[in-house]
Design a protein around this nucleic acid. Sequence first.
DNA 1: CGGCCAATTGATTAAACTCAATCTGCGTGG
DNA 2: CCACGCAGATTGAGTTTAATCAATTGGCCG
Lengths: 249, 249
Amino acid sequence: MTSIVTDIRPPVDSSAVVRKLGALTLLSETEIDFLEGLQNNKVEVPDGVDFITDGSDMNATYLVTKGWAIRYSLTEDGRRQILSFALPGDILGLHVNFRRTATYHAAGLSQLELAVIEPLRIVEISQNYPVLAAGLSWCTAREFAILGDQAVRLGRLSAYERLAHLLLELWHRLRLISETDGKWLEVPMRQTDIADTLGLSLVHVNRQLRRMQSEDLITVEKDWIRLNDVKKMIALASFDSKHLSEFRL
Amino acid sequence: MTSIVTDIRPPVDSSAVVRKLGALTLLSETEIDFLEGLQNNKVEVPDGVDFITDGSDMNATYLVTKGWAIRYSLTEDGRRQILSFALPGDILGLHVNFRRTATYHAAGLSQLELAVIEPLRIVEISQNYPVLAAGLSWCTAREFAILGDQAVRLGRLSAYERLAHLLLELWHRLRLISETDGKWLEVPMRQTDIADTLGLSLVHVNRQLRRMQSEDLITVEKDWIRLNDVKKMIALASFDSKHLSEFRL
DNA sequence: CGGCCAATTGATTAAACTCAATCTGCGTGG
DNA sequence: CCACGCAGATTGAGTTTAATCAATTGGCCG
């Protein structure tokens, strides 16, 4: 059966990862406690500081608990491509047991709070918590699908479509962790970050954003964006949300 | 320690997946036998036929044994984005136990031979063959890294750079499975496929290919391409091969 | 020989980039 | 309280890259 965002989920005061996995499967008390316990080693990462560096050794898995992180890659001459966003509840470096060398950089947009998780605890999950293990594997598969969507955006959508498509991805993902009321999103990105995500120039992103505002699809205020007509936006960007929330066991 | 392509590897008459994993770790007889045994259920897929369809149920894992497959995605209005190539020895649908719904299409370029693998056998691997399990996890991490490289190509490289970068990726990957002599690659793609991989128009790909030939970087003959100056090409595309062959345990 | 697919080329248009200012909000020090 | 500086956003003008449209060519197969 397919489980969708609107199902019953744990109370809002639980951590993002619990909200995320809890939206997909029914978590037992033990499992919730274990997930919360994973987060007792928290770290603050200042704005813009890399906590993962391409080519360097990774010896931990990171769970985002507050703020947004980006995974990105740099060319020799300094061009930056943002590969994906890690929102609260997302995990970076799950593969740490099999590939110790990072293949990307990761840093926070704005201030970031991370839980640092020992590789051994990941092993522990797959041995003792089958439901959580399935949840993590689902997360991995989902990341993969999201990265595929990113490739479609970059390769085959126009600038305007890319922008709409990205906003819809973020909207869906934030919805899964109850970080949007259904309209407004808090988006800690600068226009430069959007440009480096969508493979566009800063100036062009600015123009497409203005256009989207003038067409009343979005409203922008400080770090907040409101999606005024999700349905129209989905049509415009030929967006398919099934990669983001579908789950079967 | 880091193990590189130049190490001793199993004889050339072994299957591609054995050559691939054997290039990274020393495989025991038992492990090699198991891998060969995985391939007793072979299927032929005619040119251009989808063997995986976006949105449909997946109930098996596929190992490419002959020919090249593409993973791709279609927009509503028919634009195609090729996400990645599956070369001999590559495996599609490893996540089948956790996500039964495919998030992409897959088809062969030219005639294709696949080994169909029962999901249960994948579980068997992780339980009984730790070295192979590590190898498969490495494959998954590598696919992820390759998809990241694809995003960089699409988002931040020029058309000419994209082309060079793609050829280098394929060259490295074919080298790992001993399907190139170091210069010539057999490439079953049409220019249309290259266009849909690189997010360009067919006409533009043609022009960049001609340019690359006129600059003596490549020689093209039928379905074969020769890289005449790998070093120059690596510099031109700011290509980084460490994602493709680095392995540590 | 005809038909078809893939490659190639030319001409034109459109999308997106670059360069160069300017503007706006906000915090800081005097 | 205001001048200054800075980061981020915005706008204009001109250029470049790549797309589109439209033929034409070349090879291969029946």
